[in-house]
Computed example of a mutant assay.
Amino acid sequence: MSWTERLAVFDTETTGTNPLTDRIVTAFVGIIDANGEVERGSDWLADPGVPIPEQAAKVHGISTEMAQENGELARDVVERIRDSLNWIARNKLPLVVYNAPFDLTLVAAECRRHGLDAPVLGPQVVDPLVIDRAVDRYRRGKRTLTDTAVEYGVELLDAHDASADAVASGRLALALAQRYPDELLVDLPTLHEKQREWAETQAASFEDYMRRTRDANFTADRGWPMRALN
């Protein structure tokens, strides 16, 4: 059976852009079918325990006050996300995460922060950002989820809402597989390894570019689908 028959999808909205130090504000984990229709899903609003910067609140619409009044305890939310990801791993479903190293590193860091074991995933992560950069290397323009969704005809009506972004990422993975079947319609472990190699190549290329044009000592972040925490 193709990995495109049934996909798990995951996304977070956060207090900032550093997965090692920032916190989860909202999250969504769901399952979609081969047509991109949502079978089921769970979403959470957390009180991150720290102020939500105004810039972050403008992106996802959740203020510190909203999170404090309506959010669950951060540890409880992190534990439920962890348990959901472990369930996905046990059932060997593909897990679609756009820019996976951000969200998966964030979850691992949050687990450590709250004294929880991190989720243990197998070779099942599907990252449309890494894939798109590999299969359409020379396309000009931004590679945000919003821009890439437009490129592949995927509707995204509420960008920076965790559930909307997660579902759009899953549908984008399906669209990529349809457009590039020879590269992508392989077994899940093979696809996972391809992405690991692509991600390393992309990081090395970016590092080389930055060293030549801006900072001779620049080092790109490494680690796909999750960065090291130390």
Results as ranks from 00 to 15, higher is better:
Tyr180Asp: 00
Arg112Ile: 05
Glu193Cys: 04
Asp208Thr: 15
Arg139Ala: 13
Val150Leu: 11
Ala199Glu: 00
Leu145Tyr: 06
Phe218His: 03
Arg179Ser: 11
Leu185Asn: 11
Leu188Tyr: 00
Thr148Trp: 05
Thr146Gln: 13
Ala203Val: 01
Phe206Arg: 03
Arg133Asn: 08
Glu193Trp: 09
Gln124Leu: 08
Val167Met: 07
Gly153Phe: 03
Asp147Trp: 10
Gln124Ile: 07
Leu156Gln: 02
Val135Gly: 04
Glu183Gly: 00
Leu156Met: 07
Ala177Pro: 01
Arg113Val: 07
Leu188Trp: 01
Leu157Cys: 10
Gly153Pro: 10
Leu185Tyr: 00
Thr201Asn: 12
Thr146Ile: 14
Tyr138Leu: 11
Ala159Gln: 07
Val186Cys: 08
Leu174Glu: 03
His160Pro: 09
His192Ala: 11
Lys194Val: 03
Asp117Lys: 13
Gln202Asn: 09
Gln124Cys: 06
Asp132Tyr: 08
Ala173Pro: 01
Leu172Arg: 03
Gly170Gln: 05
Asp127His: 05
Ala118Ile: 03
His192Ile: 00
Val130Ala: 13
Glu207Trp: 01
Asp147Ser: 15
Arg137Met: 11
Tyr180Pro: 00
Val135His: 04
Arg171Ala: 04
Leu184Trp: 05
Phe206Ser: 02
Pro123Ile: 02
Val120Leu: 11
Arg214Trp: 11
Glu200Ile: 10
Thr190Asn: 05
Ala173Arg: 00
Asp221Ile: 06
Gly122Tyr: 10
Pro123Thr: 08
Pro123Ala: 13
Pro189Val: 06
Arg214Lys: 14
Tyr138Trp: 15
Arg179Thr: 11
Ile131Gln: 01
Asp215Lys: 03
Leu116Arg: 03
Pro123Ser: 12
Ala177Asn: 02
Ala203Phe: 04
Leu184Cys: 02
Tyr138Arg: 13
Gly115Ile: 02
Lys142Tyr: 13
Ser163Leu: 12
Arg212Ala: 14
Val135Gln: 08
Arg211Cys: 09
Ala162Ser: 06
Arg137Lys: 13
Lys194Gly: 05
Arg143Val: 07
Gln124Ser: 12
Asn217Thr: 15
Ala173Asn: 06
Asp136Ala: 15
Arg137Phe: 12
Lys142Ser: 15
Val125Phe: 06
Leu176Thr: 04
Asp215Thr: 06
Glu155Asp: 14
Glu197Gly: 09
Arg113Lys: 14
Thr213Trp: 07
Leu129Cys: 04
